[in-house]
Design a protein around this nucleic acid. Structure first.
Lengths: 240, 240
DNA sequence: ACGACAAGTGTCACTTCATGACACTTTGAG
DNA sequence: CTCAAAGTGTCATGAAGTGACACTTGTCGT
């Protein structure tokens, strides 16, 4: 189990970092203006997470979020396109980490296998707070997705936006051209779907799994064997 | 190609029906009130489709839609939970048809295969305007999904809402218990994902396919063979 | 150091979606 | 015919999101 994480120490995260990784990392000589902007952004995210956790997603208004940081709600919308958008920051970080972990998988692993090992390692990192991830926020998002359809919906959309990139990654590893070969598209779609289903299975507590990563792992594993299962009442003749 | 449609004449649609199938079908002796309600609903859907096609989704307000039918916008929201909701009526009909077609597939077909044949037949029916489907609306929705993220988003969400039902269907055909077996969940997720990807591939015109149903068919077909493809630069050693 | 320029922000006004409250009309049932 | 319920309109309200414009502050060239 833990073994999956073994080869992943080189995922690409600097060892020591405080709660605001992006500030220093993004632009070393960016000047005060840039830093101020980053601080405001981080403050808004913080404020949003706190209020969401406290009162729920739809119950908190952007005005409250902005007021808590002492900026106008107009400013909030200059940083985030929508209320949901605040949460996507986190998912973006996850996705980036996932890409890196995926790229680091040994070349002899088939796509789904590599994807499973990579994504499970990243999710575990989120759960355990490794590599600068905040398990509090991870849990908060999970809770919000359960309770608020709007959040889950925006997560779906966000996943879709990443679809093209995913497809490219798959195509690269498979060494095929996504413009002529549908298979990388299929793989990307499938994985995206399985991610969200993993979450639903986890939160609806079927399987009684302790951790999201375990559900995800199991689902992806089942993908590796092919899924065109025979119908029930039929002799086990292999599908044509 | 056309052969796929062969066994599907018994999908369950009455032969002769005008543009408002639900009116007579739903409640034979429902009284005037019920009929009036249905007419208003249909009128709203009509009006919405017309305006969406004409001015685009976000450019038309619910007030315009309602005004065109001479009801207040308040009334609109008594029929539909949101502006997007109007479009989901159509998708519901599609989904229902798909379920029936799926149930009618011979018992010796594996899940994905049956699903492919069933769904492709339904989509073809939409494209060709068979069984009471309106190809105009089908095309309109496709166009709206391309141009308006909100529509695509709500379609995603709607698909997710149908997920539980899909899972049940899969589990039934596979003869397993969805409470203990993850495979039907995986299948449902995968299929849902592939549907949306099929649409994206179709509208981005990769593959240069003429019809949506062709793209869908190809994608589902590729699912049937399993998708854990080996990485590129590696000897064709079979995946462990 | 100074001034021009641009970025960031606040304020105000506005549109649209969505919902709650209440009153009026229609319709179905007894 | 009468009454209750369903359907609808009107009014009011709240929150999301956007455009316009002015003010402040950081940045950069001189």
């Amino acid at each position: 189990m833990k073994k999956v994480l073994a080869g992943q120490s080189d995922v690409g995260y600097p060892a020591g970092m405080d709660t605001t990784p992006a500030v220093q990392a993004c632009s070393p000589t960016a000047g005060r203006r840039e830093r101020k902007k980053q601080r405001t952004r981080e403050a808004l995210v913080d404020s949003a997470f706190r209020l969401f956790a406290q009162k729920g997603f739809e119950a908190t208004t952007v005005e409250e979020i902005a007021d808590a940081v002492d900026v106008s709600s107009r400013t909030f919308f200059r940083y985030f396109a929508s209320k949901e958008d605040v949460l996507l920051t986190f998912q973006d970080e996850q996705f980036t980490a996932m890409k890196e972990a995926f790229a680091a998988r040994p070349a002899d692993e088939p796509v789904i296998t590599a994807l499973r090992r990579a994504s499970v390692s990243v999710v575990r990192a989120c759960e355990d707070g490794e590599f600068g991830f905040d398990p509090e926020r991870f849990g908060c998002i999970q809770h919000l997705m359960e309770s608020s359809p709007a959040v889950f919906g925006s997560s779906l959309e966000h996943g879709q936006k990443k679809h093209a990139e995913m497809t490219r990654l798959m195509a690269e590893r498979m060494g095929v051209d996504p413009a002529t070969d549908v298979r990388p598209h299929v793989v990307a779609a499938v994985v995206n779907g399985v991610f969200h289903t993993a979450f639903e299975l986890f939160s609806s507590d079927i399987l009684g799994a302790e951790r999201f990563s375990d559900v995800l792992s199991e689902l992806l594993r089942s993908l590796e064997d092919g899924i065109n299962f025979p119908a029930a009442a039929v002799e086990t003749s292999s599908p044509s």
